[in-house]
Computed example of a mutant assay.
Amino acid sequence: MTEHSHSSSHLRRRPKQQRGKERVEKILDAAAAIFDEVGYDAATTHQIADKAETAVGSLYQFFPHKAAIFNAMELRHVERAKVFWAQITTPEVVQLPLRQMIQVLMRSVSELFEHPVSRIVFIQFYTAREIFQSIDEGMTQEAINVLASILEQRNSHLGKDKASLIAEVCVHGTNAIILAALRNPDIQHRQRMTEQMEDLMVSYLEPHIGDHLVENVMKVMKCPHCRSRQISKNGSRRGKQCYLCKDCGKQFVESVMLKATQDTLQ
């Protein structure tokens, strides 16, 4: 990273008042529209200011140059992506039937990229990566890690390496489809591509985390405290699956639960 790109990673002046924050968001949305229309290289701060319906001097109060505007867009996208990841990793989502879980994922992806800033940042990452200052391949790896965690929660017998490999295929595959969809101006065609992506994900993941696998495992599992079979997955801790008993309300890790189940079967 050059000295120039490092210095541009911060706002010249951070807005404290709500009106100033709204002006910054309006500038970022306007920049997304201009970058989409003419491309990053051809875009100017004057065009962005005009689109945001603000004076260019007002724009310079917050951003010293175009690179700083784009970097702020990067950071906004990262914030939204982290919210997206948090939403899809809740036990309520992870424990849904496979088709419903994928539908929630796809709906959340669509909502994420409905925002112009996230849409343009995603497209630019695959078409003009040299302009990026904050986002790199590490963000893709985070997405892979998040999905791998979901896979392990649904089927703890996958193992970390297998779950990571499956997640890597899913993330890179869906990113390619999302990129093609976002670059297509036909909104209806985008929707059709999203629907096909849902079918693709379900077909690929069904052998690994299909409902029959999850149901078969859960049927023989018992709470080590009250022997109830009414248990549900409840996140993970130190690489081990955690469970919650719906009857007694106690939590326990996979190793404790498996020992109790084996004792019962014996």
Rank of each mutant, 00 (worst) to 15 (best):
D50S: 12
L213N: 07
M197V: 05
I209S: 03
T90F: 01
L151S: 04
C170D: 07
S9P: 01
H208N: 12
A128R: 15
Y126M: 09
T264A: 13
F252P: 02
Q251W: 10
K162W: 00
C226L: 07
A163L: 00
T140E: 12
E168N: 12
M221C: 12
R237Y: 14
S9R: 13
V121R: 04
T90G: 02
K16W: 13
A43N: 01
V109F: 05
L244A: 11
L265Q: 10
C248E: 06
H77S: 14
V253G: 12
Q262P: 00
H189R: 15
S164A: 13
K162M: 06
G235I: 03
H115R: 07
S255H: 09
N216M: 11
R119P: 01
M193F: 00
M193E: 12
I69C: 00
Q133A: 15
E53G: 08
G138N: 13
V214W: 04
N216Y: 09
V146L: 06
T174P: 04
L158M: 05
Q103T: 05
M257Y: 03
D136H: 11
H157S: 15
R19M: 09
E206D: 15
G159W: 02
Q61N: 15
K246H: 14
A81D: 07
A181V: 01
C170R: 03
M218W: 05
F125V: 01
K82E: 15
A86T: 08
K160C: 03
I187V: 14
V220R: 12
N184T: 09
V109I: 15
P64G: 01
E168H: 11
I144Q: 03
K82V: 07
L265R: 10
I187L: 14
Y204M: 14
T90S: 08
G235Y: 06
C245P: 07
C223T: 02
S164F: 11
I102S: 01
C223S: 02
G20H: 03
H46G: 06
P185D: 11
S203I: 05
M73A: 08
H189D: 05
E111R: 10
C170N: 09
V38K: 08
R14K: 14
A31K: 00
R23H: 09
Q95T: 15
